[in-house]
């Protein structure tokens, strides 16, 4: 129990959001257990990023409510940290100071920032300017910044979307490792179904502003992309995302035929 307490509990009830006449979220219900890793997938424009921004407290709900540890989120969610798609590092500060931003540059931030940098394996870049880093390194720094304050909730807004395939696999492993160590609650928004299954305990599909599917990923970690269960699960979610109704068995057979 004490381990699980590190992450927060999130409960979303009847959440609705419209921008003017456009309804982005319609009657969303979602329970996230402490320490759980939930991935939200969906086509672009389905409202998944808006949902994440609500949990961060960056948007005002039109109706319904979001509770964190049974308290309504009102204004900016101070326990949450976001990792954005673009790293959003300050170009005029060193890598170390950028990580220190995660602790608000308060007392003793340097030591904590150094530790966080070690966790992502970039402590030797502490005094460099961000502009000389590669895209993958920038996202590692952003991850270190997000985790520096030991947040109980990590929100990931397509953080690996702009990275190349190999770097992305590295980052997925790093995120899994750190999540297993720290036991924070994680909410990942992505359009990459395989990434969702690789990382998450649960995959939630949002379509037209509603929860369309919510399935567990019963795979042990470390996960293997080439396992049959992984592939089957990926196909199932993909079929739902694309709106194709394919029978479970058929899809398996189709795949086998295609491979032969």
């Amino acid at each position: 129990m004490s381990v699980e307490k590190n992450g927060v509990h999130i409960s979303i009830q009847h959440l609705e959001k419209s921008f003017g006449d456009i309804e982005v979220l319609r009657d969303i219900h979602l329970e996230i257990q402490p320490g759980e890793f939930v991935a939200i997938v969906g086509k672009s424009g389905c409202g998944k990023s808006t949902l994440l921004r609500h949990v961060a407290g960056l948007e005002v709900v039109s109706a319904g409510e979001i509770k964190q540890d049974y308290h309504r989120i009102n204004g900016l969610n101070q326990t949450a940290r976001i990792m954005f798609q673009d790293a959003r590092l300050l170009p005029w500060e060193t890598v170390l100071t950028n990580v220190g931003i995660g602790i608000g540059l308060k007392k003793n931030w340097k030591e904590q920032a150094k530790k966080a940098l070690q966790q992502v394996g970039l402590e030797e870049r502490a005094n460099d300017w961000p502009s000389i880093l590669s895209g993958g390194q920038k996202q590692r720094i952003a991850l270190a910044r997000a985790l520096a304050a030991q947040p109980r909730l990590l929100l990931l807004d397509e953080p690996l979307g702009a990275l190349d395939a190999l770097t992305r696999i590295d980052m997925q492993e790093l995120i899994t490792d750190l999540w297993q160590q720290k036991k924070f609650t994680a909410l990942l928004v992505t359009h990459d179904v395989s990434e969702a299954i690789m990382l998450a305990d649960r995959v939630v599909l949002i379509e037209k502003g509603k929860v369309h599917m919510d399935i567990q990923v019963p795979l042990p970690r470390p996960r293997n992309r080439s396992s049959a269960v992984f592939a089957e699960l990926e196909e199932k979610v993909l079929a739902e995302v694309l709106g194709k109704k394919v029978g479970k068995k058929d899809s398996g057979q189709l795949k086998r035929v295609a491979n032969e």
Partner: peptide, 11 residues
Amino acid sequence: GLIEMGKVYSL
């Protein structure tokens, strides 16, 4: 984006 980041990180 940087200003939003600063706010989210409660600077």
